[in-house]
Design a protein around this nucleic acid. Structure first.
Lengths: 347, 347
DNA sequence: ATTAGCACTCTTTTCGACAGAGTGCTAACA
DNA sequence: TGTTAGCACTCTGTCGAAAAGAGTGCTAAT
């Protein structure tokens, strides 16, 4: 277990049991849970008065909170945190689910883009939340191949393939009228010269011979840089429906999620906190750096091959969400995607 | 004006004025409109009783409907239809908006994919609804160029570029270990042979020499066919938040929209009705072929170059939506996208 | 043809009462 | 000393009646 910062305060065995039940009950029902329901619904060996007593202490310690004087208690962010860290148990997807998911991936076309899309939708499904997945990004994109295809005398389509087989296409306005044959010849020459180089290296090491070649090289560096700039990183998301049904996201709240996802600003909100390579990371409510996420729980992980290609993936839901489900799903999906990357890039 | 089927019934001048006001008022407020509010809010020259009388006739004629015995009237689908066809006036975006949009497009990278995305978001914004945009599709994709890039001895990345400069990448498992040089040589030869041909033509006319070449050709036909099969047509959408705030899409209704968009089934629901090349087409409530769209208004248009490349684009909203805004936005956007296609494909 | 007036219908809001759920505290109990 | 039963109290949610508001159809007068 390495699901973020530990919790120092010690609770009695019974308090922990009660906290656990409260979290689970609240996550399941969505309604604040009181001492009586707890004793009725679960075979705790004590009376409601005792539970009340313990609840009061848990509240004192900051694990529970009351929204109204009467009306049961709900976990605080800290309560969730304790639950996730100490009470929840090891989150692991059932092997049935694992096999099913892995099998589904085999059905999908062998292609990065599709994997990312698919991962987003599978993750949304298994975690029952909104999922977000970024396409993996290389630290430094390196040229593998490029093509120039003449469209008009002064317009060409440039197709750029990196070492990591990421393909990017862009239109290039040419400084002078140029024939396809000429373009092809130049491309061949430049490919030979720039293979395996990064944008920086191309810029310093390679001197263009003709003006045209210089211009094309410049475009290539632009293209390569574009591939590893964070701003351009695309985020796919899926499963907004999952979150929409829930009571806490009635009207306005729903819009805020949508806005978050559309602008792609989740990335900015979440990314700074993520340390690559570690296990699944969980941010609950206030723990989120971004204000907009204060009322959400975020479960993220990185995937890929450390030091080479990495992407992020995770889910986003109300603070009151099933962390067990989310964490197990995210963890497994990160593992799976890493495997796939390994497979794709082993060369 | 050519916004779909005309309406035969004749109304008096006053009835039309009243219908127009009712539609506008209802679209704006979302609440059924009664005779009194109408006389209070607008300078109609008659009393509420007269309005009531006329309303009763409009209801008889099928343009209005009452949800409850008391509580004002709302337009029927037919009422909207009449409004759109006869009362609304020519929908045209303000020239300011037009210039702004066109200018924004200049800022975007010169690339098809980006245009489609961008069109979706601009359209959602200006129409204030959910927008859907399909990438333009050629009737028959024709080969222009392809590349094979060796990844592993038996795995290559194939990049396929059509005459229309649509790029598709796919992984190809090779039947035997093959070197990059060998792949390149074969690709060059096959490109020369297949340039300008469609999948069908490639299949019949070109006989592969080696087993490998035959296999690659087969993959190419698969790739080309994939590009013009309807099922694969991707739909981008944008602006779900716009629709979410509205009262009619409180809980469950919202989910149905999401489901529609996610599955990509809107395409299937809308496409059959669309006749290419004509002006903007409007489907109001029951006029929609698909059951799922019965409570929506749909405004669609095709764009592109007739007979060569066409895509669709449009918006989707509650029946109670501003048709004027939607139609003018869709019309302008279709025009703009057609211009861009023209520019891209003029060669 | 229009309109003022009227009786009627329905929806929405408001308000009080009441049940339900939960709490804290205290006193008794083991 | 930890546990429990009991009690008074608080707050929420629901139910129903009453009132308000909006709209309608009809009729009779203009």
């Amino acid at each position: 277990m390495d699901v973020n910062q530990p919790e120092s305060v010690e609770l009695t065995e019974r308090q922990r049991a009660i906290l656990k039940l409260i979290v689970q009950e609240y996550v399941a029902s969505g309604r604040p849970v009181g001492s009586k329901t707890l004793t009725e619904r679960y075979p705790v060996g004590v009376s409601s008065a005792t539970i009340r007593h313990e609840m009061a202490e848990l509240e004192q310690a900051g694990f529970l909170q009351q929204q109204h004087t009467s009306g049961g208690r709900i976990p605080t962010d800290r309560g969730y945190r304790y639950y996730v860290h100490r009470l929840m148990g090891a989150p692991e997807l059932s092997s049935g689910d694992q096999i099913m998911i892995r099998h589904q991936f085999r059905q999908v076309e062998f292609q990065l883009d599709q994997w990312v899309d698919f991962a987003a939708s599978v993750l949304a499904e298994t975690a029952g939340n909104v999922s977000i997945v970024s396409a993996p990004r290389t630290l430094v994109a390196k040229m593998r191949h490029f093509e120039l295809i003449s469209l008009q005398p002064r317009l060409a389509l440039m197709i750029l393939v990196t070492q990591e087989t990421v393909v990017r296409q862009m239109m290039v306005h040419l400084p002078e009228d140029t024939e396809q044959t000429e373009l092809s010849r130049m491309a061949d020459a430049l490919v030979a010269e720039t293979r395996g180089l990064s944008a920086d290296e191309i810029e310093t090491r390679v001197g263009g011979v003709t003006e045209l070649a210089r211009y094309v090289l410049e475009q290539i560096t632009v293209g390569l840089r574009g591939l590893n700039s964070v701003e351009r990183t695309q985020i796919r998301h899926s499963g907004i429906e999952n979150i929409l049904g829930q009571p806490e996201f009635a009207g306005e709240e729903a819009q805020s999620v949508l806005a978050l996802l559309r602008g792609g600003s989740i990335l900015g909100a979440v990314l700074p906190q993520l340390s690559a390579g570690s296990d699944v990371q969980v941010f609950i409510g206030d723990e989120n750096p971004a204000d907009a996420l204060r009322r959400f729980g975020v479960v993220m992980a990185t995937y890929g091959i450390t030091g080479e290609v990495t992407g992020i993936l995770g889910v986003l839901g109300p603070t009151r969400m099933s962390y067990w489900r989310s964490i197990s799903s995210v963890r497994y999906m990160a593992l799976l995607m890493s495997d796939l990357m390994e497979e794709l890039y082993s060369s």
